[in-house]
Simulated assay, not measured.
Amino acid sequence: MSTVADKLAKKSSSTTSSKQVRLRLVYVDFWSAVKISFLTAVAMAIVTVVSVFLIYMVLRTTNLLARLDEVVVAFTDGTFLLEEFLSLPQVMSFAAIVAILNLVVVTVLGAVIAGIYNMMVKVSGGLLVGFTSN
């Protein structure tokens, strides 16, 4: 009788011909790089806003901001209140501004990197990449 294990052993011992291909990456499409970097930046912006909101809520529920405000009041004789500057709308607007700036910077950086790579390929000949099929 032949078991499943015997069949698998026969199958794994047979030699399979794997084809190997070596390709050279000599061009990165500029608009594709811009689109990919923009989508990556959008994902990073969403993560930034959500994480700032969650961190603010954790600090608020643990009363850490109130304790920090007491320390600041002790040093400034009550002239500076930290709670005035760290309200939820102000924190979220700051997070949104940082996310928008990050969106612009990452998108431009992706375009610049694609341009630099395309110029470097003229000197170096490109990136050699190997692929195999099993």
Rank of each mutant, 00 (worst) to 15 (best):
V91C: 00
I97M: 09
L68P: 01
T76V: 06
K11N: 12
S18P: 11
F38Y: 09
S18C: 11
V108H: 03
T40K: 11
A99F: 01
V73T: 14
F30L: 14
G115P: 00
Y117F: 14
M57C: 13
I55K: 06
F38I: 05
P89Y: 03
T79M: 08
A41E: 00
N102Q: 08
Y117A: 04
R22C: 09
I36C: 10
L54D: 03
Y56P: 03
V28F: 02
K19V: 12
A45T: 04
S87C: 09
M120F: 15
K7P: 01
T132L: 06
V42Q: 02
F80H: 08
S12L: 15
V49Q: 03
L109T: 13
F85A: 10
V72A: 01
S93G: 10
T76S: 13
V71W: 13
K19D: 07
D77M: 02
A66K: 12
F94T: 09
K19N: 07
G78A: 01
S18A: 11
D69R: 09
T62K: 05
N118S: 00
K11Q: 13
S17P: 04
K7M: 14
W31H: 07
L109Y: 10
Y117W: 11
V72P: 00
A111V: 03
L68C: 06
V123L: 12
S51V: 11
K11G: 05
S87D: 14
A45D: 05
L101R: 08
Y56R: 08
A99D: 00
F53C: 05
M1C: 10
D69C: 10
R22N: 13
F53Y: 15
N102G: 11
E70K: 06
V71F: 11
N63K: 10
L39C: 12
L82M: 12
L103P: 00
F94H: 02
V73G: 00
E84R: 14
V112A: 13
N102A: 10
A5R: 15
I113N: 11
T15C: 06
K35T: 12
L101E: 09
G78Q: 02
V50F: 07
V129W: 05
V4T: 13
S51H: 06
V106Q: 04
V108W: 02
V129E: 08
N134M: 07
G130Q: 15
V106L: 08
L128V: 12
V34T: 03
V58Y: 06
V28M: 09
L86Q: 04
L59H: 03
I113Y: 09
E84Y: 10
T61L: 14
V4A: 05
L39S: 12
F94S: 06
S37M: 02
A66D: 15
V73Y: 08
A5L: 15
V121Q: 04
A114G: 01
A99K: 01
V98G: 04
L54V: 15
A45F: 01
L64S: 12
A43H: 02
A66Q: 14
P89W: 04
S87I: 06
V21C: 08
S87N: 13
Y117D: 05
K11H: 12
Q90L: 14
N102P: 00
S12K: 15
A96R: 03
V121N: 05
S37W: 01
I36S: 15
R24T: 15
V50M: 07
A33N: 03
S12Q: 14
V52G: 04
F131Q: 05
V123G: 08
A43T: 11
L101I: 14
I113P: 00
V108E: 00
K19E: 13
A66N: 13
A95F: 04
D29C: 06
T3V: 03
A96P: 02
